[in-house]
């Protein structure tokens, strides 16, 4: 395995389109729920342990070699609102383009052919990690990190926060990212014996609601 490949996959500059999404922060800012570094940290913590854990589980399972089409169904069942399903597939399509160029593999080609409009993004990331020789835990880490770094970066732009404060909060969330990535990889281990129901389905009803509300806005800075 190449540890450098993990850095590449988790890098915000990896051309997979993530920078255009705020992970719900734009809607939370509009509601006044996120307004400073402290409330941003609380937002990121809550997101990491819900959506973050669920996505990390899917990424880990894909990296472990489980059937990506079954995982794609499992991802749909874990994403009850259409706005967030559309975002996950759009990001998956963009990740697929980048992944095929960087870590080409037969698995990626097969999934691209089966889901031409995009598979859920964590699965594509998981398959790219697998092609790069990374582990399920690595894929879970990349997803967990992206789950909080995306909203933190977006909030810096939306609220004109000090980027140093945003980096500080990401550093404070490191133990939680460790916990989430580890739990996700353990759950992916159980898929062989228990099926996809073994994967986490941690969810936040509020994130689903504001995700759907945000999609109905006519003017917005971020796509989600």
């Amino acid at each position: 395995m190449s540890r450098a490949a993990l850095l590449l996959l988790a890098d915000g500059r990896f051309p997979a389109g993530g920078h255009a999404h705020s992970g719900g922060v734009e809607a939370a800012v509009a509601h006044g729920a996120v307004h400073d570094t402290e409330s941003l940290e609380a937002f990121c913590l809550g997101r990491l342990h819900t959506t973050g854990l669920t996505m990390a589980g899917l990424a880990a399972a894909a990296a472990a070699g489980h059937d990506p089409l079954l995982l794609d169904d499992a991802a749909d069942a874990r994403t009850p609102v259409p706005a967030l399903r559309a975002v996950a597939r759009r990001l998956g399509r963009q990740m697929m383009r980048a992944a095929r160029a960087t870590f080409p593999s037969e698995d990626l080609e097969l999934l691209a052919a089966e889901r031409p409009r995009g598979a859920h993004q964590p699965l594509v990331l998981g398959l790219a990690a697998r092609a790069a020789g990374l582990t399920a835990l690595d894929a879970a880490y990349a997803t967990a990190y992206e789950n909080v770094s995306g909203p933190a970066t977006a909030a810096v732009r939306l609220l004109s926060l000090d980027p140093l404060d945003a980096s500080g909060l990401l550093a404070r969330l490191s133990p939680d990212m460790d916990a989430v990535a580890t739990a996700a990889a353990r759950a992916a281990d159980r898929v062989t014996t228990e099926g996809v129901d073994a994967l986490p389905s941690a969810s936040s009803p509020l994130l689903d609601i504001i995700g759907e509300q945000h999609a109905a806005w006519t003017v917005r800075l971020f796509a989600s």
């Binding site: 719900g24 939370a28 937002f43 809550g46 997101r47 342990h49 389905s201 969810s203 009803p205």
Partner: peptide, 17 residues
């Protein structure tokens, strides 16, 4: 498939997300 978890000691359970 949805799991929710509220109350202490759930991290961030009452937060903005």
């Amino acid at each position: 498939d949805q799991q929710t978890a509220y109350g202490n000691p759930e991290p961030g359970w009452d937060g903005p997300a």
